[in-house]
């Protein structure tokens, strides 16, 4: 059983009375522990695909099965729990709570957790420290640069030890040094903890960190390939790849 399974997913948005089909009949499986990057031109539907995989909205057509559960049949309450426990989001537009300190933004998902680990604050501080924001913990998003905000969103996605990380352009606003740090974090999570990582990016260099590269164009999967250039240093989990 795949961790993520999309069966003939379509997503249509209505805008100004016109139906715009953003995703067209997409079928896709991702196994637990995989490291997938999604590339494609702007407007191809990458972020839309992420909202569906993250249970933030339902597809117009098709079936989405996450960890054995058909999302359409799951109650909103249960979906909230799934998002809270299983998924860590990194959004292209950051989506930080305005006016709230970095450390509290990072810890926000814990407000909605059933069990809050005792060392939550230390963990949040450690993560922020690790990504170079130790000195910015009490700053609010408005007081942080784009790159710093991006790093806060990454720290937030990690706080609940999710099974899946859905990251939309996580390095888009970072300089190469910080970008490399972030990618190292993802690589390590995938390698050591077996976290499934789904990475949306424009940057071929970044995409190369993944073992599998998915290309989306006009709402369709254009290609789904193994990454031949997969870095030697990376030794992934035993099984990987699509069936």
């Amino acid at each position: 059983m795949s961790l993520i399974e999309l069966r003939s997913i379509s997503k249509t948005y209505k805008s100004a009375g016109l139906d715009v089909e953003v995703l067209k009949d997409i079928s896709l499986r991702i196994e637990e522990g995989e490291y997938v990057s999604i590339i494609g031109p702007s407007g191809a539907g990458k972020s839309t695909l992420m909202t569906i995989m993250g249970c933030l909205g339902l597809p117009t057509k098709g079936t989405y099965i996450l960890d054995g559960e058909e999302v359409e049949r799951v109650s909103d309450r249960e979906l909230s729990r799934i998002r809270n426990e299983k998924i860590g989001f990194v959004f292209q537009a950051f989506h930080l709570l305005p006016g709230v300190k970095a450390i509290d933004n990072v810890m926000m998902p814990l407000l909605y957790s059933r069990k809050v680990p005792k060392d939550a604050r230390q963990r949040a501080e450690a993560v922020l420290d690790k990504i170079g924001l130790g000195h910015r913990m009490t700053h609010t998003p408005g007081q942080l640069s784009g790159g710093e905000q991006q790093r806060v969103t990454i720290a937030r996605s990690l706080i609940n030890n999710p099974k899946i990380i859905l990251a939309d352009e996580p390095t888009g606003n970072l300089d190469s040094k910080n970008g490399v740090e972030i990618m190292k974090t993802f690589d390590r999570l995938n390698r050591e903890e077996g976290t499934t990582i789904i990475l949306i990016t424009h940057d071929r260099e970044v995409a190369r960190h993944a073992k599998r590269i998915l290309t989306i164009k006009d709402g369709e999967i254009e290609s789904d390939q193994w990454n031949e250039n997969f870095q030697k240093s990376q030794t992934g989990p035993a099984r990987s790849g699509a069936e």
Partner: peptide, 16 residues
């Protein structure tokens, strides 16, 4: 709404 959306993404229920 934006704040509400963010909270919902990270696990807030409707009741929250």
């Amino acid at each position: 709404v934006h704040e509400i959306g963010i909270r919902r993404c990270f696990g807030a229920r409707r009741s929250d």
